[in-house]
Simulated assay, not measured.
Amino acid sequence: MTPQDQALHDRVTASFAARFGHASHLVVRAPGRVNLIGEHTDYNDGFVLPCAIGPATMVAVSKRHDNNVEVVAADFGDARDQFNLELPLERNIEQPWADYVRGMMSGVQNAGYALSGANIAIAGNLPKGAGLSSSASLEVAVGKANLALADIDIDNTRLAQIAQRAECDFVGTKCGIMDQLISAQGKAGHALLIDCRSLGLTDVPVPDDVAIMIVHSGVTRGLV
């Protein structure tokens, strides 16, 4: 675990323990991404070449014995959200960050996977609005963590498709598949060539003597 990941792990587990009074059952990490080639082509049946990056989202979870879900967001002053998996889920107008959690868990259930109630803590070190896919990272981490709690193992491409649908249909951002797919399928030391017609994936090694540098312009952007 890198020092960056260790600091994030310590933060999310501390937030979880402070809220719920016990240690989490597991912690899941999903990375952000930068895209090397191919802009606005994933939702036009084109090719893209993203790679996963070090900054990520981590989700700490434990199983509940009811269908309630309680979420605490360490990045928003330990703001909380609560909902019940047996009731129709609606967007949280007052706390938009919660829609990514609600949408992902609703999407997993709509895809036919039975989830249990859960206690969830979330923390990330991806800057919001910087074009590094913090939302896709959150969706993938939430989905992976809650499927693991239910002892369900699904293909990572299927997980990415559910995450994309959650962002498109629940959150309301009509995005392509690239962000969720690289977060779910990225490998260390590689970029990922994605054929968005077929979702065919080809790992592309990054040479050892090449460093990919990301420079923040200071300009916030957002998909709507």
Rank of each mutant, 00 (worst) to 15 (best):
A184D: 02
N44G: 03
L201H: 07
D10W: 01
G200L: 00
T173M: 14
V71D: 08
R11K: 15
T41D: 12
L192V: 11
D209K: 15
I194P: 11
L201K: 09
R19A: 09
G112P: 04
T2G: 03
E90Y: 07
A74L: 01
D81P: 07
G124Q: 10
A188V: 14
L181M: 05
L8W: 13
D5C: 09
N92K: 00
A14P: 02
G112T: 04
I120W: 05
G186V: 01
G107T: 02
V72F: 11
L149Y: 02
R19T: 11
M178T: 07
R80N: 02
R29W: 00
V71P: 06
K128T: 15
V12S: 06
R33T: 08
P3K: 07
A148D: 02
A160E: 05
N146Y: 00
A30V: 06
S198P: 03
F83N: 04
D155S: 14
S217A: 08
L199P: 05
F170V: 08
V72G: 13
R165D: 07
A141Q: 11
L138G: 12
M1T: 08
A136W: 05
L193M: 05
D208P: 10
R19C: 10
N119S: 12
A166C: 05
G21N: 04
A148Y: 08
N146G: 04
F47D: 02
P96H: 11
E90A: 07
S137F: 10
L193S: 06
P3H: 03
L87V: 01
A150W: 10
W97D: 04
P50T: 01
R197Y: 03
L199W: 04
D75G: 10
M58V: 04
G103H: 07
D75H: 13
A60L: 08
V171K: 03
T13W: 13
E139S: 08
I53V: 12
N68A: 13
G46H: 11
L193G: 06
L132W: 02
A114W: 11
V224R: 13
G46A: 13
S62H: 01
L223H: 04
V206S: 05
T41Q: 15
F20C: 04
A118C: 11
L147S: 09
S133F: 13
M1Y: 00
G172T: 01
P3E: 09
G124W: 02
H40T: 05
S137K: 07
S217D: 09
A160F: 06
S24D: 13
G222A: 13
G189C: 14
H40K: 11
L199N: 12
D153W: 01
V61N: 08
A211L: 15
P205M: 00
N146F: 06
A121H: 06
G112D: 06
R197S: 13
D169T: 06
N44K: 02
F170L: 06
T202D: 08
S217M: 00
